[in-house]
Design a protein around this nucleic acid. Structure first.
Length: 272
DNA sequence: GTCCAGGCATGCA
DNA sequence: TGCATGCATGGA
């Protein structure tokens, strides 16, 4: 992969195994909005980005090389060999056609707090409505960037809100979870940074101690916000997929089960 | 009107 | 340990 800057844009050439449309709209992140020209606008780690893809070329607009190195390089997981990962997954004949069909789905390395918070919102909810709630949350309590977009609000900021404030965003019965979660993180009871260095079981156990976080939400947060690529979230869609794996998951999923899951999840939503 | 969505806490056996 | 139930909201 070659990285260069041109007219204020960062351009990546020769990127393997990437499909921006699938990656940004597969239900792992809730803040990316597709533009009329096919590019995507979004905010992560306090920065706005417009990103577009033309085959194996990826163009990052409204950013610079320094921000690319500090944020986007890791966010989009550009250093991981997804082509090799897909080849490994395809040893399982069941997932092979799905990997071919949706080739290029990547796991985004999102901010831990944002991932945990948005997946608490996600429970018993649909993706469209989750996006709406997250956007209202950011508009109301995030910091405004120069072009009108807002950052995801910090735990400190949200710890000042009441249950009623969260309800006003349309979070429904999840409001009480968000209220306690924000205070727990802001107050230091829950150390998110420490979780990344734990084992998967230990990390999951820690997250399960939070009011409003169950197995599914914990696994989503671990996969999308804490770099546990082996976390395997099972929601209503994945429960349907799991009927195809009555004997458990194949060995070739070891260590990368979360990536396999994302392909299967996408397949299920389109076919079941 | 009913059913469903990237589920969880609670109570009960 | 496992299973049944209530829960907010909005789109289909």
């Amino acid at each position: 992969m070659k990285v260069k800057t041109e007219k204020g844009n960062v351009i990546l050439e020769g990127v393997e195994c990437i499909n921006l449309d699938l990656t940004l709209d597969c239900g792992q992140a809730f803040r990316w909005v597709k533009q009329d020209d096919g590019s995507w606008n979004g905010v992560a780690f306090g920065k706005f980005l417009n990103i577009a893809q033309d085959g194996s070329t990826v163009i990052l607009r409204d950013t610079d090389l320094d921000t690319y190195e500090k944020i986007w390089r890791h966010y989009f997981d550009f250093d991981k060999d997804y082509a090799a990962i897909c080849a490994t997954l395809k040893k399982d004949s069941l997932i092979a056609p799905t990997v071919d069909e949706y080739y290029g789905i990547r796991i985004l390395n999102q901010d831990s707090w944002e991932a945990l918070c948005t997946f608490v919102i996600s429970q018993q909810n649909n993706i469209k409505r989750i996006k709406g709630i997250v956007e209202r949350l950011c508009t109301a309590y995030g910091d405004e960037l120069e072009n009108g977009w807002h950052t995801f609000p910090s735990a400190e900021r949200l710890s000042a809100l009441s249950v009623e404030d969260f309800e006003a965003l349309g979070t429904g019965y999840r409001a009480k979870y968000l209220e306690r979660l924000s205070k727990a993180v802001a107050g230091g009871e829950l150390d998110l940074d420490g979780i990344k260095s734990m084992s998967l079981d230990e990390a999951r156990k820690t997250l399960l101690g939070i009011y409003g976080v169950g197995v599914k939400v914990a696994n989503c947060a671990l996969l999308f916000g804490f770099e546990f690529y082996d976390a395997f979230p099972v929601d209503v869609w994945m429960k349907r997929v799991m009927e195809y794996y009555p004997d458990g998951l194949p060995e070739c999923f070891d260590g990368i089960g979360g990536i396999a899951q994302q392909y299967l999840f996408h397949w299920a939503r389109n076919n079941l």
